[in-house]
Structures are given as structure tokens and as C-alpha cells.
Simulated scan of single mutants.
Amino acid sequence: MKRLLMVGLLALLLVGSVWLVKQRPTGVALVQPIRGEAIEAVFATGAVEPALQVMVAPRVGGRLAELLAEEGQMVKQGQVLARLETAEVEAQLQELNARERAAQLALERAEALVAQKFVAASEADRARAERDAVRAQIARIQAQRGYAQLLAPTSGPVLRREAEVGQFVAAGQVLFQIGGGTTLRVSTEIDEEDIARVAVGQPVVLRAAALGAAVFEGTVDSIPPKGDPIARSYRVKVKLIDAPAALRVGMTVDANIIQARRSQALLLPVTAVQSDQVWRVMEGRAQPVPVQRGATGHGRVEIRSGLKEGEAVIARPEGLVAGQRVRVAP
């Protein structure tokens, strides 16, 4: 009997202790909203690229015999980038040159016979036409031999090379991508859900990880009419304004396309806002207060309505329930 009584007392003490713990006020810290600039923006990632990009492709097909430019190399306009094999073309030229010499001799004989009135003048005309036809074929083959050399259409860095020696390439197949000029731009990928909020001319704030915390500005320059249905994104071009001298082609960039800027907005730390509500201390108890959120950025949330300046809220309301007893930590 005594043992049962002791067990009962211990159970009562345990329940009482739990109840006392639950009734003990939870310590919380308060934070007041501050005034600052709120920025609504569409976030995107991208890369730096030349504003002018030129694709280089052969006009005729053939096997690559020589590559004379590497990725990253600076080339000058007219510089040879690659050569295709020309053995077959050279053989055709030899054959046509022989035919041209024979046609020239036939024309000279025909002209001599016409002068002696042994044959009609039309014989010389026919021989001349045959010679001219061979010469036209020679000019065409010589042009093809010239097409076997790929020349740089502009001066600039080789951004990409898409072939190797020995590879057969088709006419029109892009082998080199060259950046022209010194002007840079940023190519960003915008999610299809955000593209409706982007317009040409909008300001853009950019940051390149390679340049540390430095930021620079630009504007939306172009938006394609068609997106990528697989990636579900649109490639938007950003024109740079006073780009840093250290910015290089290929650097990755974070871009914020500015939708709106509001000065003197009411801002709270993001930790103080949960599920579109903040928590206030009212008569020693935690009470949720619904608010309208605005822009979010740099660890702060804009409060559009539901809270006034000077009204303190709980800094970290995780785990609180409505009506829970709390005490403000000093």
C-alpha cells in the first residue's frame, strides 16, 4: 500500500513539474521595424560575353587538315584559323589546267585556219567557247580551294572551337565562335514564371563572384520572343553600364532585375516574419498578427501593412503558439 502511495505521489510530482515548466514564460527577444529601401527584383544568373559574337563556318565540306587557333587566343581580322584538305581540289585543277592548254591550242589552230579561209569563222568561235568554259571551271575550283582556308572575319578572342584535326566537317558547320570588339554584355536565364515581369530598359544590379562584393549596373537590352521549352527559361541580354575593368568574358554573374524601389519602407528581419504574420507580446502572451509582405532581400522583409513603426515584434517566433506565456529577455 505504501509502495502504491509512493508511486502515486511521484506521478503527481512529475505531472506537476511538467505543468510548471509549461506555465513558465518563454524568453523572447523583440525587434522593431526600421525604415530603409525596399527593392522588388527578379533574380537571375548569367555569364559575361562579348556584345558581338561571330560564328565561323566553312563554305565547303571537307576534312580538317590543320587548326591554327585555340580557345582564348586573340586573333586578327583575316588571320587563318583552319585549313581543310585540298588534295582532291588540286588534282581537279591539274586536270583543268591541262584541258585549258589543249583548248587554247585548238583555238589558235582554228583562228589560223579561219585566217587562211580553210574553215568558217564559226569554228574559231566554237573553240573559243570551249576554252572559256574550261577557264570558268578553273575559276570555280580555285574559289573552292580558297574556301578551304577559314579566315577570321573580325579581330577578337576565340570564344569556342568546335572541331579537331582529322574530323570531317560539313559546309555551314560552325567551327569557331569569335568575340568582336571590346564591349561586353551579360546573358541571363530568366525563369518562364518571371519573364512577364521583365521589360526592355529595366535597370539591373549585377555582381560577379570573381570580383568579390563589388556591384555594377546595367539595363535589360533584349528579350527573345521564344524561350527554351526544356529549360523553361528565356535568355535575356543585359547591356552593361560602366563595367569594371577586371570583368572578363565567361565570368558568372548574379543579376537582380529591378521592378520597383521604395525608399523609407518598413523593414523587418526575415526571421521575424513567418507565414505572412508577425508575433507581438500582448499582456505577457504571444499573439500572431497578420501582415502584408512586400519585397525581400538582404535578410529583410518589407511590411506593406499590418504593422506600424515603433511596434515591436518577436525576433524569432519559431515554435510559439497563440496565447503562450512569454517574457521579454533583457
Rank of each mutant, 00 (worst) to 15 (best):
E70T: 01
G299E: 13
V204I: 08
A139F: 06
R248Y: 00
E193G: 02
L9C: 15
R304K: 15
S222D: 10
G212V: 10
V313W: 09
G284P: 08
L159G: 01
A87Y: 06
A170Y: 06
V186C: 08
E283L: 09
S305P: 03
Q73A: 10
L267N: 04
Q92G: 07
K76R: 14
A102T: 13
T26Y: 11
V236R: 02
L84S: 15
V174W: 02
T296Y: 06
V21N: 08
Q287C: 00
V204D: 02
A115D: 14
L175N: 06
L52E: 12
A272C: 13
T188E: 02
V253E: 15
A106R: 15
K226E: 15
L12T: 11
R35P: 05
A272T: 03
A312D: 04
A102F: 09
K308P: 00
R300H: 14
A82Q: 09
E70C: 01
V31G: 02
L14F: 12
P33L: 03
L4I: 03
E66I: 04
R248D: 01
I190E: 08
M55A: 15
L5D: 09
E123I: 06
R135G: 13
Q94N: 10
T183W: 01
R293Q: 14
G201E: 04
R232D: 13
N256H: 10
Q73V: 00
P269K: 02
L5M: 14
L68E: 00
L113T: 02
L240T: 00
L151R: 05
E302L: 06
V21M: 09
Q77W: 01
R160K: 11
V253W: 03
P50F: 07
V174H: 00
I230H: 10
L150M: 08
S187E: 13
A91I: 10
R63C: 00
A127R: 01
V289E: 13
G250Y: 03
A44I: 05
K239G: 15
V301W: 11
T219F: 07
L9K: 13
Q116A: 08
L184Y: 05
G78K: 04
R3Y: 11
G306P: 04
G299W: 12
E37Y: 01
W279R: 13
E37K: 07
P290F: 05
W279T: 01
M1R: 05
S263C: 00
Q94F: 10
A265Y: 06
F176P: 01
I141M: 14
Q167V: 09
A129G: 11
V278M: 06
A124R: 04
G72I: 02
E311A: 14
M282N: 10
F216M: 07
G310K: 10
G212K: 07
G319P: 10
R126D: 15
R131I: 04
I258M: 08
V270S: 09
Q92D: 07
E192Y: 06
V301Q: 08
P269Y: 02
M74V: 03
E40D: 15
L64R: 00
V220F: 11
I195P: 09
E95K: 15
R35Q: 12
E88P: 09
W19R: 12
N256Q: 11
P330V: 03
R160Y: 04
D276R: 12
L4F: 09
R145F: 01
Q94W: 07
F168Q: 12
G46T: 02
R3H: 12
V56P: 03
L266G: 05
V291P: 01
G8C: 09
A139V: 07
A243K: 07
I195H: 05
